[in-house]
Design a protein around this nucleic acid. Sequence first.
RNA 1: GUCCCCAUCGUCUAGCCUGGCCUAGGACAUUGCCCUUUCAAGGCAGUAACACGGGUUCAAAUCCCGUUGGGGACACCA
Length: 471
Amino acid sequence: MSDVRVRFAPSPTGFLHIGGVRTALFNWLFARQRQGVFILRIEDTDQSRSTDESIQAILAGMKWVGLDWDEGPFRQTERMDLYRSYAMKLFETGHAYWCVCKAEELEARRKEAEAKGLSPRYDGRCRNLRIASPPGDAALRFKAPQTGQTMIDDLIKGTVVFDNTVLDDLIILRSNGYPTYNFSVVIDDALMGITHVVRGDDHLTNMPRQIPIFEALGFAVPRFGHLPMILGADKTRLSKRHGATSIMAYKDMGYLPNAMVNYLVRLGWSHGDQELFSRQELIEKFSWDHVQKSAAVFNPDKLLWTNAEYIKASPPRQVAQALVPLLEQAGLRKEVEAVSDEWLAQLVVLVKERAKTLVDMVEWVRPYFGQIVTVDEEAARKFLTPTIIPALNKLIVRFEALPAYSKSEWENSFKQLVEEEGMKMGQLAQPVRVALTGRTASPGLFEVMEVLGRDRTLFRLQKGLERASTG
RNA sequence: GUCCCCAUCGUCUAGCCUGGCCUAGGACAUUGCCCUUUCAAGGCAGUAACACGGGUUCAAAUCCCGUUGGGGACACCA
């Protein structure tokens, strides 16, 4: 048992994206390694941007990659009373004050400051007004320290120091009564007993705004860890224009969740030269010491390779299970229902070295469903020609003489015929391949026959022969 | 503009803290060869990096300073 308590706190303003998953993953790994608690918290205090669909998408994404949480999901909008009471506590203890500046005025002043090349900070004009009974549309501001320094020993970045002179008084309660992020985060992290706040390093500059709030309220300050960003190929922050950023898009593209996790964890973390890790190994080997400090470029090629490795190494039945929904989407529902799980697993074994994604795999696997195979026209024109008729005929006769399919027997029979006819292996193999699979590229011929079974093999060879005769 | 963070092959990274073992290792991608009934997979080999400039030291990828470059933050967004 340990007292580690960490959290993943996304805001529900869109889908669960790649960067979010990686942040969640590092938190989850740390919690599992230390037998701590992983909490899921939904930060939905911006009522204009938060949606229920987003919450569902986040939960679905977390489940897909197998990041289970121990507490939550909590929603900040269900904790409003808490934020308000702590905000009032800050007011009563003199750590906060009412601000009657209008949003539009603040906006205008900020723009003005920017135009002059100054820091767009709040000038603190309401700080000493001592407004005791504010109008309904006042906001509450926290009195930030104006001298000294705020520092942390970051899990990843090491010592980070800010001069408090750069701070301004941030709003903690909006005029509509809703708390702002920097405030609700502190209250929740404190109340939920979070021991390690691990988040993206775009939050690093929020740290000096949050720590004084912890202190003003007498809360213990947690440890922080700021993860580097994930960048697109152009080295700017990963966004829609870099292609898919939603984790679920990768499910649709045929990626395995474990492959996603493996790729993402290696983006910014390493364990010597090792590239592939089981979930258990990840939990055992994870360490903050080996988390990179600098941003990483998302590399789709390497993700694809990782996925291919997982397709090859995962239990075939498990891959088959993940493949079924895609097969059904591809219009093979009836065909899939007609076959056994074992046979599907066999099919996976047949093609797993060729498919880099499940979507790829659907195409590789398609010829093995149904009695008849759709033959590629160009392939037929090239290989199912009259010249192949005699050899194909003899092959069928020989195969028919063999009562049951046996890989070695059929292969020997095939090779013997090739030799007797004075052909090259490929001269007979390619026409047979086209007859059997409809294509010029396929897995090994005799593995294909095994999956097809004796009857369908014979049937398709016969069809191929007819095709060669009619042209 | 101000503040913060960062800097090893095209990309992900090992090495850096605790200088010599670094002629800088691995992986992806890429090129060539091998294997081969096709396509893959696999095997072998190759190209490719310490951002720059100063220090410190017998010795610097490693420690220090500066420069440059990149990223992030400066909201009644999170």
